[in-house]
Design a protein around this nucleic acid. Structure first.
Length: 206
DNA sequence: TGCCAGGCCCTCTTTAGGGCCTT
């Protein structure tokens, strides 16, 4: 078993809210198939505005680097192709989905792909973790990392490893044979107290 | 021009407030 396929995505942006003018400055995405990463996509994007000193410091992405980067719309067209019809995963997916939808809208495209959130899943599966920031979870679960944080491709890869680790833990702990995207989506929505019984019940269905 | 988020989730809740996550 293990035909799980999804694109794990991460954006670096000029701020927190596309509704107030913030734009994307970098995207990283990895195609996960079965239990491994099989393809990668990464690009900086010129947002047409200066990014703050905070963002330069937080991401290591400077205004100089962005001055020679391709326009956002060009990268979005490539990203649209990379994503295709795959399901999507992100850490705190509400954030990345808002930016993805806002930038897609600017190229007259509307997302139909479903999202699932690794943060919501980790809060249920690893309630004992110190916190549920991506960086903390990577260390807590001893996941593969190159030590880079707050860059899009590195964060997408770490999120992918976290996602695969959660799938493996569900299989090992509950004896669920296969963990499709739909089941992971349900994990992010089931009431926290009901997760244990929910997964025990699923062990007989998958 | 400047405004500056939003969804989840807990609790001393539901006629609400605040911490957690993302940049």
């Amino acid at each position: 078993m293990g035909n799980f396929t999804a694109v794990v995505i991460d954006f670096e942006t000029t701020g927190l809210s596309p509704g107030y003018g913030d734009r994307t400055i970098e995207v990283g995405a990895v195609l996960v198939s079965g239990n491994r990463i099989v393809d990668r996509f990464q690009s900086l994007m010129n947002p047409g505005m200066r990014v703050s000193g905070f963002i330069e410091e937080y991401t290591g992405i400077t205004n100089t680097m962005l001055s020679t980067a391709p326009a956002i719309k060009e990268v979005m067209a490539q990203l649209k192709s990379f994503i295709g019809q795959h399901h999507l995963v992100a850490h705190n997916a509400s954030f990345d989905s808002r930016f993805l939808d806002a930038e897609f809208k600017r190229i007259d495209h509307r997302r139909t792909n479903e999202f699932a959130c690794s943060m919501l899943a980790s809060r249920r599966l690893y309630p004992e973790a110190p916190n549920h920031r991506l960086e903390t979870l990577v260390h807590y679960k001893k996941l593969k990392t190159d030590g880079v944080h707050h860059r899009a491709l590195a964060d997408a890869e770490m999120t992918a490893h976290l996602w695969l680790n959660m799938i493996a833990d569900i299989k090992a702990t509950y004896g669920v044979r296969d963990v499709p995207f739909k089941l992971m989506q349900q994990v992010t929505k089931v009431p926290k107290k009901g997760l244990h019984d929910f997964l025990l019940k699923k062990a007989t269905q998958y």
